[in-house]
Amino acid sequence: MSGKEAKAVVPKLRFPEFREAGAWEERKIEDYFSVRSSKRVLQKDWKTHGVPFYRTRELVSLYNNEPFSSEIFISEELFSEIAKKYGFPSEGDFLVSGVGTLGICYQVKAKDKFYFKDGNVLWYKQNGGIVSSFFYYCFHSDQIQNQILGQASISTVGTYTIQNAKVTKFLCPTVEKEQQKIAHCLSSLDEVIGLQAKKVQALKQHKKGLMQQLFPAEGETTPRLRFPEFREAGAWEVKRLGEIVEELQDGNWIESKDQSSVGIRLIQTGNIGV
C-alpha cells in the first residue's frame, strides 16, 4: 500500500520526540502478517499427554493469564512432523479466536510449545515490519474490535474468518521506534495493573478469612475472633429475617419495550452488587 493510497491520521496524544514524525497510516493485517489456520489434527490423534493442543477455551485462559490444565495433547512425533512440514506458532506471532468468543488475541511467547485446533483459531504469522507488542495493543483497540464484531454480525454462524482477518484495518506509525515506545508505555501500565490485581486478590482472601473468624461458625453462637470490648457481651442471638425486615416483596415487572439506556437505573439479578 503506497502512502497515497493509505489513510493518514495524527493521534491527539503523542510523545514529544515523534510529533514531527509524520502521520500514522492505515494498514491491513495482511500487510504485516500471513493469516492462516493450523494443519488439521484428527480427534483420533488426541492424546492424554505430550504437546498441549489448544482450542478457544484454552486461548481465553492464556489471554486472561488464568491457570488451566490442558485437557488434550498430541504426540511429540506428530508435533515434530507438523512443525517440519507446516511450521508452528513462534515468538511474536498471534493466535486469535475466530469462533464463539471472538477477537481474543494471544501473543505467543518464546517458551511456548503447543499446537492448536484448525478453524476455531486463526494464526497471525509475523512477516516483519511491525513491532509485535505494538500490534497486540492495536488489536485490542476499538478500531479492530468493532471490525471483528461487524464482520461477524453478517455471518449466519458468527465467525471471524481468515479472509476477514486479512483485510481488517488499523492505524500504524511509520517509525518503528514510536511503535516500541507506545508498546513499552502500555506494557508498563499492564505490569502495574497486574501487581494491583494481586494485591486486591490478597486483600479479598484476607477479608474472607476475617469473616470466617468474625462470624460464628455453623452451629455456634459465638465468633472465634471478637473485638476486645465485646468479648464479654455474650452469645449472638438467632433471629429470623422476618423479625428484622418490615416487609419482603418482589419488584414490579418491567417489560423490555419499557427499558431504556438512559433514565432511572433498572436493577436486575445480573447487576446486583456491581
Rank of each mutant, 00 (worst) to 15 (best):
K84E: 12
F18M: 06
F53V: 02
T174Y: 09
E20M: 00
D31S: 06
P228D: 03
S256F: 06
V51S: 05
G119E: 02
S61D: 09
E229V: 02
D142F: 07
S90C: 12
A183V: 03
G150Q: 11
E91K: 14
T159K: 08
Q212F: 01
Y32G: 08
I74F: 01
G158P: 09
K44H: 05
S90W: 04
E218I: 09
L266S: 06
W24Q: 01
F170G: 08
G119V: 01
S188E: 13
A197K: 13
T56Q: 04
E232Q: 14
F73R: 00
Y137L: 12
V99S: 15
W236R: 05
E25R: 15
G270Q: 09
H206R: 14
V245D: 02
E232N: 14
A183M: 02
C138D: 11
K47H: 00
W123R: 05
R240W: 06
T168C: 14
T221G: 01
V274E: 14
K109R: 14
E20T: 06
Q180E: 15
P223H: 02
N64K: 15
A197H: 03
F215T: 14
G194H: 06
Q212T: 08
R19L: 09
K125M: 13
L248R: 14
H206W: 11
A8D: 10
I162T: 13
